[in-house]
Design a protein around this nucleic acid. Structure first.
Lengths: 205, 205
DNA sequence: CCTTGCTGAGAACGATCATTCTCTATGGCC
DNA sequence: GGCCATAGAGAATGATCGTTCTCAGCAAGG
């Protein structure tokens, strides 16, 4: 009874790619139709407006990006997983089609604060923060929430700086700052509870 | 012999405001004409294309933003000035018309890497990094350049997170991370050269 | 068979886009 | 007073925007 998934998938993937590469407003429906091979009529049967289509494409990207991020930070102890974030980011920044965080770009382009697209961007950051919080909590830190927020700052800061300057080594500076965070707030320094409850569970994304 | 500055100033200020609030592509020339009160013919005599106009408006914003940033971080010792960054950011994030970093937003919206607008965004980040480097160098840190890059990450990360989530306290988390950076790399901990050459000079912006 | 609904291809719509043009002051300079 | 560049206001241009509509093909179900 569901719609043919291949059509929807082609449509969302082409939309995501075009919007990420060229921006939302600069991406016309003509380009989406041509790149996806999906007819206009079919697009507007699936999504009432371009905004809804772009929001759905960004939700799709959120899903895939989180899967990629979790898969790249799944090996080792919790602290090793936290530090694995930054080499992972570096490889992303070095990709030829890297153009920053799609959600920050989208939120920055959309003026209307009530737009559905802004809501998707917010949701993505909340999901990323929740995953980081899982990791810092698994490390046994007392202030795991605060630490997750600091990691989020480092990730988004490195992503933004890498986009504007084109220098992938922004991930390295962020990684060094993260290492400092882990060292200074390490559970083994006596200022925080011992790490007797590490690696409790892993969230699925 | 120069052009009447009031016209150019009205034009650039209206362009900057509209582009920052609503994005580049969503801002039409009609809106710029109406908001600035400058005639179309005069606009195209001053700037050959909309892209050049927006680039000039962003250059103007760069100038004013850096002046605001330097003025807000001019009191106290170098390390106090570095830490004053984050309450300053917090007040910015709390402003009703805050919409993130105009340069990150612009670079994220523009796909063409050779665009003049992208160059202005890059220049802004280079100028901000240079100023941060002045401050960290004045603190007497051995790796002042690296530290300035880390501060830039924190600033841009907090700005991006505050835009997407609307939470101004992203600046507080960034400030705590910065304090950690200053403490762990403090010149007084013996791992770095003593701070016998602090506060050498101040750059004008 | 006939109907029904989905698909692709593309025409058509009114609106808006960036850019150029016309027209009418206006204000300094000789 | 005459002159000329600049100013604002807005019409015109061709292109492109998001959205809707038409039409032919095709597959499934009665």
């Amino acid at each position: 009874m569901l719609e043919d998934p291949s059509i929807q998938q082609r449509l969302l993937q082409a939309t995501e790619h075009l919007v990420y590469a060229g921006g939302i407003n600069a991406t016309g429906m003509d380009a989406i139709v041509k790149a996806s091979g999906v007819a206009r009529k079919s697009i507007y049967r699936l999504y009432p407006t371009k905004e809804a289509l772009v929001a759905a494409a960004l939700r799709e990207r959120d899903e895939r990006w989180m899967q990629w991020f979790v898969a790249g930070t799944s090996a080792g102890s919790p602290s090793e997983r936290l530090l694995a974030v930054f080499p992972l980011l570096r490889s992303w920044f070095s990709a030829p089609d890297f153009h920053g965080c799609a959600f920050i770009n989208a939120a920055g382009e959309i003026g209307d604060p009530d737009s559905e697209i802004r809501a998707v961007a917010l949701l993505h950051k909340q999901r990323l923060l929740a995953y980081l919080s899982e990791l810092t909590t698994a490390c046994g830190f007392a202030e795991a929430e605060e630490m997750a927020r600091q990691f989020l700052l480092l990730i988004d800061g490195a992503t933004a700086v890498a986009m504007v300057t084109g220098q992938a080594d922004a991930a390295d500076s962020a990684g060094r700052t993260a290492q400092l965070l882990l060292q200074s707030l390490s559970p083994s320094n006596g200022l925080n509870p011992p790490a007797n409850l590490r690696c409790r569970h892993v969230v699925k994304y």
